[in-house]
Simulated scan of single mutants.
Amino acid sequence: MNILYHHRTRGRHVEGVHIRGIVNALRELGHDVAVMSFPGADPEHDHEVPAGGASASAASAGNGRLAGLVTKLPGVVFELCELLYNAVTFVRMSRAWRAAPPRLVYERYSLFLFATVWMARRRGIPIVLEINDSALVERVRPLTMRGLAQRVERWCFHQATGLVFISTYFRDKAAAAYGDIAPSVVSPNAVDLPSFDPSKFDRDALRAARGLSGRAVCGHIGVFAHWHGVDGFVEAIANQLESAPDLALVFVGDGKTLPAVRDLVAARGLSDRVLLPGRVPHNEVASWIACMDYAVLPNSNHYGSPMKLFELMGMGVAVVAPDYAPVAEVIADGHTGWLFPRGDATACVELVLALASRGEECRRVGEAARDYIASERQWRNNAEQLLTLVPAGAAA
């Protein structure tokens, strides 16, 4: 079946990982997939910016400049640009469909984007929307024209052939707000398991090279931002590390709060116990996870499905995580990870400290986490699930 994957994102970092995961999984299932990206973006070939800061390609750099300029616009102007992008989509889709009509359109849904749904319905082509964002939830960038965004979203959710939500909470919220939405499935994020295979790494050599030999290692992968709670967690546990003398922390990532965390670690004299390597290319993430005995997710949100959770579990590293519903859908407390009451920083720190001396439990739970990922949370599972929303005649 010819499938057109459409998205209006920059296609970088976690977005790019998700796009490549779904596209490659659909191709492995025997489908022909073409990707239509935001002009200048190419998540299939552009890689993350290396640690040295050089761009992966001229196209990626151009995309970054264009998208960076747009995101700096005032709220209402930015949202008007999002609306105007429907005209761009209409022109590009019309050309693509004349050249090679798809049997299915799969779109990573974006606010104010309705042209693809309208065109697919008019031509009788099934369209499935993947819902990672919504006008119903609080976003990093405040939404100015919320009422209009919700009206557009309601129409899209009703007119689409099917909807793929990243969590049950997200689907329930949409159904409560918009009523009888299109048929839907819940597909949390997933992982490319061959790329996150602990047997590919010399764990002892990696730990020795990074000064972690002989220690219990708790890690984290992700953006340093206030809503992820990394800065608060490090500050809280810094006062208690003396109670777990063999514990080392490895927090991989970059963001606004990283400088403050580095200053705190230096001021407390903890540089030998708290490693902060900064952001690393995605293809190096697994080597850092291979050094960990267990991991921590200090905070999340009510609707999200953190990609880092699946990559950690895929490497056989179980996670201490807050009990938000989407996280609890993935982690079985005490079996594939450990849950603490969301918002309870003290409970999180206490659990992390206690696990430092429970190495056998960490290994057992980590193995169960990887088994769960292997059986249910590979990108192939997501691709198979989304295809159940497509009418049988369309796939013929």
Rank of each mutant, 00 (worst) to 15 (best):
G75Y: 05
G75L: 13
G75H: 08
G75I: 03
G75C: 07
V76P: 11
V76Q: 11
V76C: 07
V76A: 14
V76D: 12
V76M: 10
V77N: 03
V77K: 01
V77I: 15
V77D: 04
F78A: 06
F78H: 12
F78N: 08
E79F: 00
E79Y: 02
E79L: 01
L80S: 08
L80N: 07
L80H: 07
C81G: 13
C81P: 00
C81N: 09
C81D: 03
C81L: 11
C81H: 08
C81R: 10
E82T: 03
E82S: 09
E82R: 13
E82G: 11
E82Y: 08
L83W: 07
L83Y: 03
L83N: 01
L84M: 13
L84Q: 10
L84H: 05
Y85F: 14
Y85M: 11
Y85G: 03
Y85Q: 12
N86C: 06
N86L: 05
N86A: 06
A87V: 12
A87T: 08
A87N: 07
A87M: 07
A87E: 10
A87Y: 06
A87I: 07
V88T: 14
V88K: 11
V88M: 09
V88Y: 15
V88P: 01
V88L: 15
T89L: 13
T89N: 13
T89W: 06
F90L: 12
F90N: 04
F90G: 01
F90D: 10
F90R: 15
F90I: 05
F90P: 00
F90W: 14
V91R: 14
V91M: 09
V91K: 10
V91S: 09
R92F: 01
R92I: 00
R92H: 06
R92A: 14
R92N: 08
R92D: 08
M93C: 12
M93T: 06
M93H: 10
M93V: 10
M93A: 15
M93R: 08
M93Y: 12
M93N: 10
M93P: 00
S94L: 09
S94C: 06
S94G: 15
S94A: 14
S94W: 06
S94D: 11
R95F: 08
R95P: 01
R95A: 14
A96C: 10
A96G: 08
A96N: 06
A96D: 06
W97V: 12
W97F: 12
W97G: 02
R98C: 09
R98V: 04
A99E: 14
A99Q: 13
A99W: 05
A99T: 13
A100G: 08
A100P: 02
A100M: 09
A100R: 15
A100C: 12
A100S: 15
A100F: 04
P101T: 11
P101F: 04
P101G: 04
P101A: 15
P101W: 03
P101L: 08
P101I: 01
P102L: 04
P102I: 00
P102S: 06
P102V: 01
P102T: 01
P102N: 06
R103Q: 15
R103Y: 04
L104F: 05
L104R: 03
L104I: 07
V105Y: 00
V105P: 01
V105S: 03
V105Q: 02
V105T: 05
Y106L: 15
Y106S: 03
Y106G: 01
Y106Q: 07
R108I: 02
R108T: 03
R108A: 05
